[in-house]
Simulated scan of single mutants.
Amino acid sequence: MKYGQSRNVQETVPQKRRLKTKPLLILIGILFTSNILWFIGWLIPDKSKQPDEEVASVAGEAITRAEWMTAMERAVGREVLLDLVNHKVMETAAKKSGIEVTDKEIELELALITSVDGRLHSGLDIEQTRQKIRANLILGKVLSNDVVIDDASVKAFYDKNESLYNILTAYRTSVIIVPTEEEAEQALDELSKGSSFDALAKELSIDLASASLGGDIGYINAETETVDPAVYKAASKLKEGKIGDAVKLQDGTYAIIRVNEVVEGRMFSYEEVKDHIRRELAIEQIPQSVSPEAFWKEFDAKWFYGK
Rank of each mutant, 00 (worst) to 15 (best):
E182S: 12
H121S: 02
W303T: 15
N161S: 08
V89L: 04
R74M: 10
K248L: 06
R172A: 07
L82R: 11
S144K: 03
Y305S: 01
I126G: 05
A234M: 09
F197Q: 06
L19S: 07
E203M: 05
S48H: 14
L27N: 03
R134V: 11
D52K: 05
L43W: 01
T33K: 14
G123H: 02
L139Q: 02
E91P: 08
F295V: 02
N260H: 04
V9P: 05
D245H: 13
Q250D: 06
Q10H: 13
I257F: 08
M72V: 09
L238T: 03
D159N: 13
G252A: 09
Y254L: 07
N86L: 05
W38V: 07
N136D: 08
E162C: 11
K95S: 15
R74N: 13
A294Q: 04
Y270L: 07
E272A: 13
S57Y: 00
V263R: 06
E105H: 09
Q288V: 12
S6Q: 07
D228R: 04
Q5E: 15
R74F: 09
Y165C: 02
G98Y: 14
T129S: 12
I283Q: 05
W296G: 00
E162W: 09
L24V: 09
L213H: 04
R78I: 11
H121R: 08
